[in-house]
Design a protein around this nucleic acid. Structure first.
Lengths: 343, 343
DNA sequence: TGTTAGCACTCACATCATCCGAGTGCTAAT
DNA sequence: ATTAGCACTCGGATGATGTGAGTGCTAACA
């Protein structure tokens, strides 16, 4: 549909615009090394490309800039693969080589490195706990009226929650409850905890404890406070360095969205596995009209765990970002496999 | 030193400027209810106030705005007490009334509410663990080569860390180590953990375990990964709504500072107990040149725990902010006392 | 002697005209 | 089919001009 020459021109324009953020004119294109034809020819071709919707003008006599359709075409067909520098790859690998094995830390660090390497904003959706299993439950009284409940999963994820001890609960019963819970719940997938408790634990509790009501209350407090998926964001200030975000109102609306977990988390969660690119208005959220969002998923075996994303202007270094995300998500998946697969 | 009339004029100017962010002229002042004298008189007085350094002009024929010295005087001598609305007080109290007793949550929520009530940015420095004691240490193997260490303090604070099990460490020894550590370290203040281990635990370990080297390594990994004090920030976008922050470069430098824990934490930590007000250049940090920072401390009994701060433009509602911070820090101290004092 | 009315003066800011140059579209020549 | 040439467009920079809010100063007044 597009001639070789048109492809070349489109590619030159996008590559250039990604780095300069300036409209590019026919004369400038004609000076590029691999362009052999004159500026007049280029003007004609550009007019055609504009008519087809791949290019835009900022005003009637300006140079051209890529349209969103142009970016989409670029990403799908035109983009040349980006070869990560040895240093960049090393930085990614190093995060996993360390003895620093805290899950949360690795993810957090990943977000930092990613925003650092790209100068965009990185957002990582922490692992969903769905398929993980309870490794151990512990309830530790702190004093007469408060205690802390600690829940460890087989992936090394730790949840803890302080709460008041229901007045009048027998300390003896406390211990019994914990023992019962541990015995019955160890190895149970987190998602099924609730069902399991109803089906097998409740009766036991009734039998062994004086005050079942209190105990029930107790368990509820300890286990079932909502625990939203963690979101790791890094490099928010990078956004403000992009020339397309000189306008503070734009930045503000974008920031509010990112800070609101309930806004951004579902967007990341709804992305398909693998690499996804959302360009400009392809993002349904108002504030992301002139941003692109690139997402990659990471997993534990077949099990999808979470999403890594980079947010930047539509004028984004797609090629580099995609390579980085690929590298990181592979590395994460690989590492987590080693850590947890055979647990 | 200042006449009654000058005090009145200074107060009117600051009160007005705090709300409008506009320079205020003699005519406007003369129209205020409690001002009885003419604009010409006011002009003379303003000229004097300017000479004394309490007021400034933005250009030679503009109205006056408060100088930093003016704000300082206002905060120290002029400010009328702010009576919090019943609703606001309720919102603060409610946070503590709930069964939601997670320490981190209360602090986090506090930051949110604070930024919400003021439209400034709130920063809370989480509790230092200095004087808290180790309640329990637990090491839980997840699989053949990784484990999670969990450390609980008497205040219900939980730290956890995943790490690799040194290759070749005998599982038998693992249990022994944990037992020894627990026996010897229970009740020891966190700060003295290291010393205590050296003085009492090391010898025991040498005696009871086959491979002391490995064990040492193990303990190091589990306990002494740096754990920076948590920082809770909320309402960053509020800054961008202030007219003095239309300039994106200003916002960016401020944001970078806030996001960098190593920058902002020491500043908060170094504040004296009670309420502190830092106006404009009184803040040594470059990016805070035209901000004010108001801090309040919260404590557990006599023991200082952490700092609550509000960051806004120098044109800040000092009176309201101080009242709110007072209310919150008192409430926090009071609540924590009930929770942990008699543990 | 303190207060006030009056007035000339200042300066930011908005508006408007002008100029410049990068870039286009179109036409005609190659 | 390509390209040189040229008239045209428009954003952005520069400068002149007017307006109005606000000042400082002087002189009159209580």
């Amino acid at each position: 549909m597009l001639t070789e020459r048109q492809l070349l021109i489109l590619q030159v324009i996008i590559d250039d615009f990604i780095h300069t953020a300036q409209p590019i004119g026919s004369r400038a294109i004609s000076k590029k090394d691999d362009v052999t034809f004159s500026s007049a020819t280029i003007r004609n071709e550009m007019a055609d490309l504009e008519e087809m919707g791949y290019l835009e003008k900022t005003h009637s006599s300006s140079g051209r800039i890529p349209s969103e359709k142009g970016y989409r075409f670029y990403v799908d067909h035109l983009m040349s693969p980006f070869y990560l520098s040895v240093g960049d790859v090393k930085r990614i690998h190093n995060m996993f080589g360390d003895r620093m094995m805290e899950f949360e830390r690795v993810v957090n660090k990943s977000a930092q490195v990613l925003s650092d390497l790209t100068n965009y904003t990185s957002i990582i959706l922490g692992p969903e706990v769905f398929e993980t299993e309870l490794k151990q439950l512990q309830i530790l009284p702190l004093n007469a009226h408060s205690a802390v409940a600690i829940l460890v999963t087989n992936t090394g994820h730790v949840e803890h929650r302080s709460f008041s001890i229901p007045v009048g609960l027998d300390p003896q019963d406390l211990e019994k409850i914990v023992n019962i819970l541990n015995e019955k719940l160890k190895g149970v997938p987190i998602l099924q905890l609730n069902k399991k408790i109803e089906s097998e634990v409740v009766d036991l509790l009734k039998k062994h404890t004086k005050d079942y009501q209190k105990a029930e209350q107790y368990i509820q407090a300890a286990l079932f406070n909502e625990q939203p998926t963690k979101l790791y964001v890094s490099g928010k200030t990078n956004i403000m360095m992009q020339p397309e975000f000189k306008d503070i109102e734009k930045v503000r609306s974008l920031f509010s969205m990112i800070e609101e977990e309930t806004q951004i988390a579902p967007i990341l969660r709804s992305q398909a596995h693998g690499i996804n690119v959302m360009i400009g208005k392809e993002n349904e959220h108002e504030a992301m009209r002139d941003c692109s969002l690139i997402t990659a998923s990471y997993s534990l075996g077949q099990q999808h765990m979470g999403t890594i994303a980079l947010l930047g202007p539509t004028r984004m270094e797609y090629s580099k970002v995609i390579s980085l995300l690929n590298e990181l998500s592979n590395q994460m998946s690989k590492t987590f496999k080693v850590w947890y697969q055979n647990s």
